[in-house]
Design a protein around this nucleic acid. Structure first.
Lengths: 259, 259
DNA sequence: ACAAAAGTGTTGGCCCTACACCCATGA
DNA sequence: TCATGGGTGTAGGGCCAACACTTTTGT
């Protein structure tokens, strides 16, 4: 039915073609084989969390082009015709971070009609957990700058990225309660103090030291190393590492990691 | 840069245009204003849950066209250029159910490159909770038939809809544990027996009657009516209704509805 | 010596689980 | 009178929250 229709050479035709889409709306399934109509553009945006001494951080880029030129925004970009949205998110993150070894999870798909002032863009949002110590960030092709920001004190963001970040923070706080995500954010060897501080930053409330240590150690996913902090002006803490094998065994067994 | 390129008149050009997209991939943000490249088609698919005497049900349509003609699949369809994915999902559901008064929540976005045999299609999946008693389903324009199926005994499904259903079932089971979703699935007045049976169907395991009643009543979101079942061959059950106002008050207060 | 974080046990209360019998009705 | 689901209370155990002091190091 629409197989001979050409797609719009420019955005000014979109309004015209909308009537064609309206026809399409009456059918509840994709039409056979050759179907051609104005489509939303598909992008990904990534809420990248990290943590350092100051607390929970978020990676933002400073846009090099309009719209929102010079403003800060989430890293992201187009989804190619032959890649999944997961692949697109990883590809974009590799630009800014130089690595693909990143914990990534789909967050939500944002589709407000006016979320991009230029044209219709639907964005699949992801959230990522990285160890800032493991990577040195660098501006990708379309960004002037990349920086870590305090996750609770962000600058004004372009598009609807403020909403996306809010959903990301909420999801992180929800997830941390029953999955030990902290391990994606901390260095290989860490102290229980660091781990607890991380949880307090994510949950936004203080936790009891003794109870925290007990419940975490009880899970059995921490390996106590025969190694200690050095050079700190207080009693050195024992170092721990995350036992991923044991963690996966417990996940399979249906174990609950509630904090 | 690509503003003069025409979109593919047919699927056979997609491979050719892929190289153009590859160029696009190097930029991490949408290009200015007039940007034209082969885009994934965007659809929605809905996992519609209902419940009746037999247990948890799922609404499926029988496809009227290829691909997967005559096979059962999830209701769904294209996302128009001027509607959100939420709107698209509601619009599609209205076709099959005749109402927009449906509890709907975004589930996940599926983007495997080969999930549709015709062309690249990315689908935003939703799950819906409806009261089958409130609506009479009817086949939409592209469907030969619509029917409720036992959610645990589904026929073979087209596309990757089996995966989508699996994610939907998992999410429902997760959600029911801390949100009283049951109210979206039951009639206005219901018995605690019905409510418990619903939970058992969703969770896939039996629950203790006394404990279930106690913990649900303790939440304070059920109004006991001065009304009883009639015409049953056993002691009539008291009827209850859901107090949505109180529920929302408790949600705001951060109350936990764990079962 | 002091500052700063590490490390360590116990108790009370609450909640969750398990469990068995009588009740009201229609057939 | 029988079959069917409705309705009710308690006791034991486990888990969680609250809580304070000593240890080790650098300055």
């Amino acid at each position: 039915m629409l197989s001979e229709t050409r797609a719009p050479p420019g955005a000014f035709l979109i309004a015209l073609l909308t009537c064609v889409v309206r026809l399409g709306e009456r059918t509840s399934e994709p039409m056979p084989y050759t179907y051609d109509h104005p489509r939303p553009t598909l992008t990904v945006d990534c809420v990248v969390f990290g943590v350092d001494e100051e607390g929970l951080k978020l990676l933002l880029i400073q846009r090099g082009h309009d719209p929102f030129k010079d403003q800060w925004a989430l890293p992201g970009g187009f989804v190619g015709i032959d890649e999944t949205t997961d692949d697109a998110a990883l590809r974009e993150l590799e630009e800014e971070t130089g690595t693909r070894d990143i914990y990534l999870e789909q967050l939500y798909t944002f589709s407000a009609v006016d979320r991009d002032p230029r044209q219709r863009v639907v964005s699949v949002a992801y959230y990522a957990l990285v160890k800032p110590s493991d990577l040195r960030v660098q501006a990708g092709s379309d960004a002037q700058d990349v920086r870590w920001f305090n996750a609770r004190q962000l600058p004004q963001l372009g598009f609807d990225h403020k909403d996306i970040v809010a959903v990301g923070l909420e999801r992180l706080a929800g997830k941390v309660r029953y999955v030990p995500v902290g391990f994606e954010l901390l260095p290989k060897k860490f102290t229980l103090g660091q781990l607890q501080a991380l949880y307090e930053h994510i949950l936004g409330r203080p936790l009891d030291k003794r109870n925290f240590r007990r419940s975490f150690l009880k899970m059995g996913v921490l390996d106590a190393l025969e190694e200690y902090q050095t050079g700190v002006a207080h009693r050195p803490s024992q170092l721990f590492s995350f036992n991923r094998r044991e963690y996966q065994r417990l996940v399979k067994a249906g174990f609950s990691f509630e904090i």
